[in-house]
Nucleic acid binder design. Sequence first.
DNA 1: ACGTCGGATGAAACCGATTACATGACTTGG
DNA 2: CCAAGTCATGTAATCGGTTTCATCCGACGT
Lengths: 341, 341
Amino acid sequence: MSDQPRPPRIHDVAKLAGVSVATVSRAISNPSIVSDSTRKAVEAAIAQTGYTLNFTARNLRQQQVGGVLALVPNLANPFFSQILSGISEVLRRHNLSLLVMDTTAVPDQPAMKVLGPYLTRSRSDGVIVLDGQMEPGLFARPGCPPLVQACEWIEGLSAPRVLADNVEGGRLAARHLTELGHRRILHLTGPQGSSLTVSRRQGFLQGLAQAGLPDPGPQDSITGDFTARFGQQMAAQVLAMPDRPTAVFCDNDEMAIGLMHGLIVAGLRVPQDISVMGFDNIEMAAYSSPGLTTIRQHRARLGRRAAEVLLARMQGQEVTDSITLGVDLVARASTGQAAKT
Amino acid sequence: MSDQPRPPRIHDVAKLAGVSVATVSRAISNPSIVSDSTRKAVEAAIAQTGYTLNFTARNLRQQQVGGVLALVPNLANPFFSQILSGISEVLRRHNLSLLVMDTTAVPDQPAMKVLGPYLTRSRSDGVIVLDGQMEPGLFARPGCPPLVQACEWIEGLSAPRVLADNVEGGRLAARHLTELGHRRILHLTGPQGSSLTVSRRQGFLQGLAQAGLPDPGPQDSITGDFTARFGQQMAAQVLAMPDRPTAVFCDNDEMAIGLMHGLIVAGLRVPQDISVMGFDNIEMAAYSSPGLTTIRQHRARLGRRAAEVLLARMQGQEVTDSITLGVDLVARASTGQAAKT
DNA sequence: ACGTCGGATGAAACCGATTACATGACTTGG
DNA sequence: CCAAGTCATGTAATCGGTTTCATCCGACGT
C-alpha cells in the first residue's frame, strides 16, 4: 500500500516542527529541558511523520548496547525459564533487552572460541552467568562487560553472586528425613564440578551430624547429572543395594521424579517402602504422584535480584558481596516415616 | 591493573598495520579481497592491539540490529524453552542474537503500549511470535520487521506459520482411545481463543467420527487453561460426574499431569479406572507415574524451522505458505483398555 | 543603565564502523 | 606499444542519532 522507501529520521521531524535536530533529540530523551511550546510541536511532528527512534544510532553514540546477556547451560532445561522470567521483568523496567545464549549448544568447540566473541562490551552491557561449569578465564579478559553470577557459581571468578542458600537446603533435607526416622539415606548428587553439588552435600552432611548420625562416607552418595533419565536409571541400582536405604535425597527435582518413576514401575511404594526428596521445587514437583517433598528456591526472585545487582554494577557501583536467598522445605507425600527394618 | 581508558578502534589497527581503515574493514569482513601480505599484517595488528569489532557501529551502517526477537507467552512456562533452544541454535549459526520477551509479563497495560515500541526495525531484524493470543493489529503497522508465527498462530495475521500438525494430533488421540474401547471420553481443552484449542478439538472430533462414534457435543468438553493446577482442580469435577468418562484427553501434558495427580490422590487408579492422555510430550511426561501417553511435537525442530523461515524472509524471500510438522503418538502407561461398565 | 546569569536553542563534532568512488599499478590483447 | 581491464587500496561520505559548545534572549540585581 503506502510506499515507505525510508522510515522518517529525526531530521524529518525537525524540519516539520521547525526546530533543529538537537532540539528534537532533547524533546525525546529529556523533555523537561525544552519549552512547552516546542515540545508540543515536536510531539505533533513525531505523530504526523510516524517517527520512531533508531536505537542503534543512539547506542553507538552512547557507547552502549541496550541489552544484557544471560548465559544459560542448556536452554531446554525448564529450570532456568523462571529465572529468565525474573531477569526479563527487571530489565524491561530499565528498557534493556534480554539476550539469551545457550552455553552448551555448540558441541566440540572450545567455549573460548564460541563464547569469547560475545563477552564484549560491544555485544552486551552486562552478563548474567547461570552456568557454573565455565572456565573463569573466559571472563577475565579486558573488554568483558560487568558480570553477575546467579544460581551457580564459578570457583575463582570474583563477580558478585546471587544464590539460593544451598547449604541450608541440604541441612533442611537432612533434618526432615532424620526426623522421620530415616537412618540410612542415599544422596543422589549433582555432577562433580558443580558448585551446587558441593554446597548441598555440605549442608546435608551438616544436617546429618546435627541429628547425631555418623558421616555416612562416600558410599552413601552417587554422583548424578541433574537429569530425570539418570534418576530413573538409578532406581535399579537402589533396588539392588544389599542394605537398601529407606530414603533418597536428590540434588534436584528432575532426578527425584525420574527416580520415583523408576522405583514405582519396579513395584515399590513411595513413601511406604522408600522416601524420596528433591531440590528446587520445580512446578512439576507439586503434581508428580506422589507429590514430591522438596526444597523451594524462589527462582523468579533470584532472577530479579541478579538483574538488579547487575544493573548496579553497570552503573558503576562496586558490588562485591554475594546475596543469599532463603530456601524452605515443602513437605509433600513422597516422604514419610522410615519403614521398620 | 592495565589501564584501558578506551578500547582500540579500527583506526588504531590501521595505523599499526600501515594501511587504511577501509582495508582493515575489508580484511575483517571479506578477507579474500585483500592481498595475502596485508591480511597478515592486519591480523597481526589486531592481535597486538586486542581489537574487537564494535557491532553497534557495523549495525548502524548496515541498517540492521543483529538480533531476532522471540515473543513468548509466559517465559516461565517450560514448554517454550525447547523451542527457544532450537531457535537459538539456528540464529547462532547466522551470527544473530536471540532476544527474548515475555508478552504477559506486564500486567494491566495494553499490549500495544508495551510491545509496540519493540516491533520496530530498529529493535530487531525479525520476530518470531510464539503467542497466539495477541492482536493482529500490533503487527500490521509500517516499520514492523519480518514476522513468523510458530506453535500457535493469530487469526487474521498473514505471516508464515510453522506449526505442529495439531489436527492430526487430535485425530491420533481419538483413534488411540477408541481403539482401547473407550466410548465416553472427556476432552479437557485449551483456552477459548487459542488456535491450538480449535484445531486439536477439530482433529479429535474427526477421530471420533472415524471410529463411528457420534459427536459427543459440548457437554463432553471442558475449557481449560493449559496449567497443571487447572487439571488438578478438574479431578474433583470428573469424579462427580453422573456418567463418569472412562478416558480424558487433555490438550496439553501439564493439564494431564495435574489431572492424573488429582485423580490418584482421590483414590482412582490410572489407567485401570480411568485413562488419561496429554499433548506435547514435555520431558516430564515420560517420568510421571504412570508414564503419560501423549502426542509428541518436535519442539526443538519446530524452533529451528521457524528460525529458518524467518531468515528466508529477512533475506527478502517471499515466504507465505505455512509449514506443518508431523506429530506422533507416544503410548505409555496412562492409557489402557476401557473399564467394563 | 549595565553586567550577569540562566534557559532555550542551533551548529557542528562525534560515536565506529562500512562502502561508493577514485586512484594507481599491473596485466593482457590487439 | 597502447587501450582496456583487473586488482588492491585509499579517501571520504554515510548510517542516525547525542552532546558539546556557542549564541541569543530576557530577567534580575545593583
